[in-house]
């Protein structure tokens, strides 16, 4: 796959290449770009304060790279919104954005509504649960978009093994990536296997691409994005940046099972939508796990529905706010 090798060589970056923030800001201003940082939250009071402090200090006050920092919250029951606001973030309740569209609980919902709420030409999404947060989690993702007009969508990956004795090492994503997503990509979209961590929650995207993407509101949002962007623009629209290391909460195998089920739903839906396969049977929304009590086993059934929001550009409210004529469809 020469294409993959070429892409990895040309469009895979390490954050250290983008240390010169002054030069980056100069280029951003030259191109007249604006950048929004969006942090989707649900009960993240322990980590959100640090993220806001670091991003605001380093990427707004000290180096004016980011034009707005917004927290889009799903309705936290802890002090997430209060903490974020106290350090100067713009805080929005997801349910209060586009209220006529209703509210659906899910990270994808927050990401979708951010397109309407935020102003930037580039939106950088960063999860709120990163213990080792650093400004590079934003600037190293927006940098390829600032410097390379042909790149539209930049994913983060993390490749910093704690110890490795040989020069060659597997450069892998998380468990769901390696067990589910990479095998699926290998089967159906081989070029996309070049993305080291397609499920990472940190990525930066140009608005004109984001506004055209339908948004699953649950687990499948990142996978669907990648498939839709790939279909529309090809592999060359992607970039990926190594951010070294991400320290975060580990999820249980049971939780990863639910995540995989949601991703698989979205993936199969895309296969059908893109005409890659046809005639899929009607699929169940019920994910079944089992737990044991002594010698008896009982079912635990989760209903996981991967609802989708339509491309933002199809909403009249959005087109009006951003002065876009036509129907957007």
């Amino acid at each position: 796959m020469q294409k993959i090798e070429h892409w990895i060589r040309e469009q895979t970056f390490h954050h250290s290449a983008f240390w010169d923030l002054r030069a980056m800001i100069e280029e951003k201003e030259k191109k007249g770009l604006s950048i929004s940082l969006c942090i989707p939250t649900l009960n993240e009071e322990k980590t959100i304060g640090k993220e806001i402090v670091i991003f605001k200090s380093e990427l707004m006050d000290r180096y004016p790279l980011v034009d707005e920092i917004a927290v889009i919250d799903s309705g936290s029951s802890d002090r997430t919104r209060e903490v974020a606001a106290s350090f100067g973030a713009d805080v929005y309740l997801s349910s209060e954005i586009l209220p006529e569209q209703g509210f659906k609980r899910g990270k994808g919902e927050n990401l979708w509504k951010a397109i309407y709420q935020l102003k930037g030409d580039i939106i950088c999404y960063v999860d709120a649960d990163i213990a080792n947060i650093h400004p590079r989690f934003c600037y190293a993702l927006v940098a390829p978009l600032i410097y390379r007009d042909s790149i539209h969508y930049v994913k983060a990956f993390y490749d910093r093994p704690l110890a490795f004795s040989h020069g060659v090492r597997p450069s892998g994503g998380g468990r769901v990536t390696e067990i589910l997503v990479r095998p699926l990509f290998s089967l159906f979209y081989p070029e996309l296997t070049a993305l080291v961590q397609p499920l990472s929650g940190e990525y930066a995207v140009r608005r004109h691409v984001l506004e055209k993407l339908p948004f699953p509101i649950g687990y499948g949002v990142e996978t669907s994005h990648i498939l839709d962007v790939y279909r529309e623009y090809g592999l060359d629209a992607f970039g990926q940046t190594d951010l070294d290391q991400r320290v975060h909460r580990n999820q249980s195998t049971q939780d990863l099972g639910k995540m995989s089920f949601g991703i698989l739903q979205s993936f199969l839906h895309r296969l059908e939508m893109h005409g890659t396969v046809d005639g899929l049977p009607e699929l169940s929304n019920l994910y079944r796990q089992f737990q044991a009590h002594d010698n008896s086993y009982e079912q635990v059934v989760h209903e996981i529905i991967e609802e989708e929001r339509p491309p933002m550009i199809t909403l009249p409210e959005y087109r009006e706010k951003f002065g876009i004529s036509g129907s957007g469809s």
Partner: peptide
Amino acid sequence: CRELILANAVMVGE
């Protein structure tokens, strides 16, 4: 200057 000082404290302290 709060965020600036706290960001330095966090980044140097970690």
